[in-house]
Design a binder for these strands. Structure first.
Lengths: 359, 359
DNA sequence: TTGTATGCGTTATCAA
DNA sequence: TTGATAACGCATACAA
């Protein structure tokens, strides 16, 4: 059973007045020592600091929050885990954001929401009623209702993922998907591949579109055979979908020797299909994934890595820039409005050179 | 660039007095309508309710929190993502907890911490200084310093994962790992397997020990050949470790026809090893994983599923029971102190019957 | 440089 | 049943 300690001795946390009494000053002076040390004479400051340390005083954040109407919390909608996604992307993003928030003394507040409308509503409520400073909007799409709604209601936020258009009326952080895919194509070309296929996400969505365009552009830039443009299939982000698309490419009379995919999940599908088709990944067929998930590492899959730590830092930096009122001097890597971060390619054994032609 | 709306119009949220004025009553009456409706005459109540609705009044949670010294937030330490784990377990747990918290109007507050000591320190600070009601301790181990420290400092918490001993001086929720492994063994026996091996986690750790003991017990109960007890290897929770252990089992003169693993990550290692060894999973070798991660589904791997939704609900229910002071009538599935939840086995094609003996 | 007064929005105590 | 008064812990404007 659970007998939980004595009474919730939460009761006796020392307060400003306690410190003031102990140091023999007024509580305002204590407040100044904390919030504006330069306005206090060094010796008083020291005496107060001593009392603070001795009592283990910590400012009550609830009181601070009520007074300043901001609770140093960043809201994040936790999405239902997509059952097919192999990639613990949210884990990593949450960790990255939390870690970045630590330096700025910000915490993440998680909330569930069933859809965009619910998310908007909760953001407004949390902002107005709970002092949540700002929000991170994940996966903003072209026709996404969230940015407009939040702007209109004065709720600060940073979008992770741009809309289709470049410049927007809100701050965003994104990864250069276009560049990432291009880097994968370049790598495969350097390895000697000429027939490169692409298995992608729905191009009408933001991420899917960027990655698909990156692929087409890279094919052109590398002056690969123009019929490569036919070696492209897009669909859902699931392993079975990846398998199906891979089969469709492999059964062609002129199959690709390499396949770039828009996600590790799709790449796993491609690898499974290859195995069933009797071609060996890393020898007969090169495969590159996207996200550098643990799965990619486990399967020796080359993959495009998103810079998670920087993503968190940039989002947090941008958030802090939005609300300078909060008094927290940004203390961030760099001033930031919109940021496009570069992914890198992690090369493993799945993206070897093409097998010598047996024809 | 980001021009973020007008000014933070956060300013004009209606307050208790606004409602009171609109309804022509005192603010205390409004408060009563919300917190103790039975103490207010129905007609007044109705009038006030109307004003509340008309103004879209929402209680300011910061003020509530300051006054009642509890912010309806549950603290959760976000762990660094383990690079080798294929399983987005935290994603799912966080979602499950958030969802369970929604019904009780609780939110999750995430915080990073580098080690146990840091976690303890942050929990204490957050509890005393930020009104965080209670915490979820993940993966409590036998010699874990956290429970003792939190009990001593009066910080309420629920442990997910028991320590080695059964009854403790704190509340916990756990999954019956022992039962889960046993269910896997039973299933394989029903399928006709007699030589069943086990690839597990470090037995000196809590989870690893429970699962390993579950395996040994099941072997005995099923009266399998006693030399099965030799078909057990334990190590790190990584794919390479799983591969190594699988090779060690496969190269024996009397290899197992089925392998139960203590994680999907290990199972993937076993499957890769089998493939390289030239035996086909689902035909020559049965494999069962643990966690029913997306990876398991993707690879057609039979796996033991932890009941994520119930885990979240039970943890939340237990948390609310700890702090009845908070005024939130539990509103939970059932009163709960310590809870052991049952996993279920998800059967896929990796755990077929043994191939007919060719000897 | 330091202290005093006031208020953030709510809940709790008590009197009417 | 309702309302006045006090307090939660802090910060801000202003006076000393």
């Amino acid at each position: 059973m659970a007998e939980q300690a004595p009474p919730p001795t939460n009761a006796t946390a020392p307060t400003l007045v306690d410190v003031a009494r102990a140091a023999g000053v007024s509580r305002q002076t204590v407040s100044n020592v904390i919030n504006a040390p330069e306005r206090v004479r060094p010796e008083t400051r020291e005496r107060v600091a001593l009392s603070i340390a001795r009592l283990g005083y910590q400012p009550n954040r609830l009181a601070q929050a009520l007074r300043t109407n901001t609770s140093r919390m960043i809201g994040y909608r936790i999405e239902p885990p997509t059952p097919h996604a192999l990639d613990p992307f949210h884990d990593r993003l949450l960790h990255s954001l939390s870690e970045a928030g630590r330096a700025a003394d910000r915490h993440l507040l998680l909330f569930p929401a069933d859809d965009d409308a619910a998310e908007i509503e909760v953001c407004q409520r949390l902002h107005r009623g709970a002092g949540v400073e700002a929000f991170v909007l994940y996966g903003v799409e072209a026709q996404d209702p969230r940015p407009r709604a939040l702007i209109d209601s004065g709720v600060p936020f940073v979008a992770f993922g741009r809309t289709a258009q470049g410049s927007e009326e809100y701050a965003w952080v994104d990864v250069d998907n276009f560049f990432g895919i291009a880097a994968a194509v370049d790598h495969l070309v350097r390895r000697g591949h000429r027939r490169i296929g692409y298995v992608g996400l729905k191009p009408e969505e933001n991420v899917g579109g960027q990655r698909a365009r990156g692929w087409h552009a890279a094919i052109d830039r590398q002056q690969l055979p123009s019929d490569c443009h036919a070696l492209v299939l897009c669909g859902q982000d699931t392993v079975p979908a990846g398998m199906q698309m891979a089969f469709a490419l492999l059964e062609r009379s002129d199959p690709p020797t390499a396949i770039v995919t828009a996600s590790d999940t799709l790449a796993v599908g491609v690898m499974r299909a290859a195995q069933q088709w009797g071609v060996e990944v890393g020898r007969d067929l090169a495969v590159v994934g996207f996200d550098d998930s643990p799965t990619a590492a486990a399967l020796d899959l080359s993959s495009i890595r998103q810079p998670m730590a920087e993503i968190g830092q940039q989002i947090m930096a941008t958030l802090l820039n939005l609300t300078p009122a909060a008094g927290g001097r940004p203390a961030t890597p760099q001033d930031s409005t919109d940021t496009l971060l570069m992914p890198t390619l992690v090369i493993r054994s799945s993206s070897a050179s093409p097998a010598p032609r047996t024809t």
